[in-house]
Nucleic acid binder design. Structure first.
Lengths: 344, 344
DNA sequence: TTGAAAGCGGTACCAT
DNA sequence: ATGGTACCGCTTTCAA
C-alpha cells in the first residue's frame, strides 16, 4: 500500500524554519520585505526540504501567470525557431517564461493550442499564424489577455503585431538583380494570395521594376510548394528554353526554392551566377547547406520575436489604455556568391 | 476606475444552468455520470458564458496535470523537431498535451527549463540532453514524476530511455560504401567523445571494417563543428591530396557536413559519386536542399518521440512498479544518388 | 443523479 | 518585519 505522499509545501517549509507561511511566501516573492536573518533560515529550510513551489497554485492565488505562450504553425521552419529564440530572450529579463506549443500543425490544431494556453491562463500569447485567425484571437482576448500577432499581416488595428516588410523584401531582391544589369527576371513561387509572404514579395518585385526606370521584364512561375524539389522542376523548365529566352536573374520566394533552382541549373552546366543569377528570399538558416553561398533577403526572425515580446510586455504593463501598435521591420539584403562573382 | 472583472468561473456556469458546481465539474470530467438533459443545460450555459476552465485550478485540485514537458537542447535541429512531433502525436490520444520549452540553450538553461516544468507539475518529462544530466533528472524525479531520456545514452537503468543505435548507424554507412567497392574511406566529424552520436557512429564504422573481411581502410578527420562549412574545409583538404591518396568514400557524421563536403568537391570538378561517394548520417530533413539527393542513415526522430511518450504513459499508468526500459531503435539506410549512379 | 463542502498549495491583505 | 487568514477556481468524496 503506497502512502500517497504529497510533495513538500510551503507549510512544511514554514514549520521547519519556524515562521509563518506568509513569511515564506514573502521570501519567495518579495525577498526585500524580510529580514536577512529569517530569509536565510527560510532559504535553508527550502534547500533542506527540496521544496519546489507549485506554479499552478501560485498562478491561481496570484491571479496571474508568469508564462507567455507561443503558437507557431510550423516549428520546422527556421524563421519560427528564430522568432521563438528572440521572444524567449526578451521574456527572461522580465521574469517571464516562454512556452511553445505544438508543431507540424494545421489551422484546427492551432486553435486547440490557443485554447490550451487560454486554459493555462498564460499572461499573453504570441501567435504566428498562416492565415487569418481573428476568431481564435478574439476568443483568447475575451479573457483580457494580450495577443501579439507575428509574421502575418492581419489588418486589425486592435491588436499589436510585428511583421517584416515582405513587399520591401521583394523590392530589395529585384533591385539587387537590376543593379547587376539583369533584365530578364523570373520570380519563382507564384502569386498565391493565400500565402502572404509570397504575395507581397511579388508585389515588391513589381514595384521595383516600375520604379527602376530601366527596360526590364519579370515573369512569374508558380510552384506547388516552396521546397527545393519545386525549384529543381523550375530549373528544368528554364533549361527547356532556348538560351536567349532564359531569364538572367531568378528570385525564388524562399531559400529552399532557390537551392533547388541552383541545383537544377548547375547540374546541367549552367553557370550561376554568370549565366543566371539566383537568389532566395528568407534567410532560412537551417535550410541552406551551402554549395554556393546564397544571396538572400534576411527576414529578421529573432528581431521579430524580441519585438513581439516587448509589445506584449508593454501591453501587460499599461493595461487597458495601451495603444496597439503595428511594427514593421525592415528586411535587409545579404549579398553572396549566387548573384555576384564567380567561384567555380 | 477599472472594475477588476474576473473571468467566468464554474460557479457562474452552475448558477446559470441551475445546478451545483459539482455537477458542472462532472460534465467536464465525467460526462457519463450526468443525465443527458442536465448535461445539455450545462453545456449550453458554458457556451453562452464563454466559459474556459482554469487549468491551474484544475491541476491543483486534481493533484495531477494533463501536460508533459519536453526539453530539447536545440530546437533548430530537425531531429528534435521530429521527436517533438512524434511525442505530440502519441500524447494526444491519451488526453495529454505536450509543452516545449526553450531552445538555443546551454546546459544551464536546460536546468532552468527542467525546473520550470517541475514547478508546473507536469505529469512527466521528456528530456533530450546533450550531455549527462543525472543531477537535473534526479531533482525532477524526486517529485515522483517520470522522466524519459531521449537521444542520449545515459546508462542509468533506473530511467526509461529511447535512443537510436548510433553504432549501428555508423556500421550501416560503412557497410554500404564497402558494398559498393569503396576501400579508402574517410570518416568526417571526428571522434569527439563528448558528442555521443559522433563517437558511437565512429565505433560502428570501425566495427564494419573489422567484420567486412575485405582489405579496406578508414581514416578519421576531425572538424571543429558539424556544419556545412566544416565539410567544405574537409573537401579542400581532400583536394590537396594527390588523386591516388584521396578517399573513394566519405561518411560525414551529419548531413550538414556531408552537404559541405559535396559542395566543396563538386565545385572543384570531382564527380560525386563516381570519383568519391559521399554520404551523411542523420537524415536532417530541414538541412538538405537537394543538389544531389544524399545517401544517409535515417535516425527516426518521429519514432523516438512516439516511443518516448509511450514509455511515459506506461510509467504514468503503472506507477511505482513500472519497470524501466531502454529502447534502442534501429536506424536504416537511405540510398540515394550521392553514393550510387551518376546523374550529372 | 445531484448537492454540499472540504481541501489542493499559495498569495496578499490586515493586524500585530 | 512577521503572523493570521480569507480566498483563487476546481475536483472529489460523502450524503441526500
Amino acid at each position: 500500500m503506497e502512502a500517497k505522499r504529497r510533495s513538500t509545501r510551503i507549510y512544511d517549509v514554514a514549520e521547519r524554519a519556524g515562521v509563518s507561511v506568509g513569511t515564506v511566501s514573502h521570501v519567495l516573492n518579495h525577498p526585500a520585505r524580510v529580514t536577512p536573518a529569517t530569509r536565510e533560515r527560510v532559504l535553508q529550510a527550502i534547500e533542506e526540504l527540496g521544496f519546489v513551489r507549485n506554479a499552478n497554485a501560485s498562478t491561481l492565488a496570484a491571479g496571474h501567470s508568469r508564462n507567455v505562450g507561443l503558437v507557431a504553425i510550423d516549428l520546422g521552419n527556421s524563421m519560427f525557431v528564430d522568432i521563438a529564440n528572440g521572444a524567449q530572450s526578451a521574456a527572461r529579463p522580465a521574469g517571464l517564461d516562454l512556452l511553445l506549443a505544438g508543431s507540424e500543425d494545421d489551422y484546427e490544431t492551432q486553435a486547440s493550442k490557443v485554447a490550451f494556453f487560454d486554459e493555462a491562463r498564460v499572461s499573453g500569447l504570441i501567435l504566428a499564424p498562416m492565415q487569418d485567425s481573428a476568431e481564435q484571437i478574439e476568443r483568447f482576448r475575451k479573457h483580457r489577455r494580450p495577443v501579439v500577432v507575428v509574421n502575418y499581416d492581419h489588418k486589425d488595428p486592435g491588436i499589436c503585431s510585428v511583421i517584416v516588410d515582405n513587399e520591401l523584401a521583394g523590392q530589395l531582391a529585384a533591385e539587387h538583380l537590376l543593379s547587376l544589369g539583369r533584365r530578364r527576371l523570373l520570380f519563382v513561387g507564384g502569386d498565391n494570395p493565400a500565402i502572404q509572404p509570397v504575395h507581397f514579395r511579388w508585389l515588391g518585385v513589381e514595384r521595383a521594376l516600375r520604379r527602376s526606370g530601366v527596360q526590364a521584364q519579370v515573369e512569374m512561375q508558380n510552384t506547388p510548394d516552396l521546397e527545393p524539389g519545386s525549384g529543381i522542376a523550375v530549373a528544368e523548365q528554364i533549361l527547356g528554353l532556348p538560351a536567349e529566352e532564359r531569364p538572367d536573374g531568378v528570385i525564388a520566394v524562399t531559400d529552399g526554392l532557390a537551392a533547388g533552382v541552383i541545383e537544377g541549373l548547375t547540374a546541367a552546366g549552367v553557370r550561376v551566377p554568370v549565366d543566371i543569377a539566383v537568389m532566395g528570399c528568407d534567410h532560412n538558416t537551417s535550410a541552406w547547406t551551402g554549395r554556393l553561398p546564397l544571396t538572400t533577403v534576411a527576414m529578421q526572425g529573432r528581431e521579430v520575436g524580441e519585438t513581439a515580446m516587448q509589445l506584449l510586455l508593454e501591453e501587460l504593463d499599461q493595461g487597458p489604455d495601451h495603444e496597439h501598435r503595428r511594427v514593421v521591420l525592415e528586411p535587409h539584403l545579404l549579398v553572396r556568391a549566387s548573384t555576384v562573382g564567380w567561384n567555380g
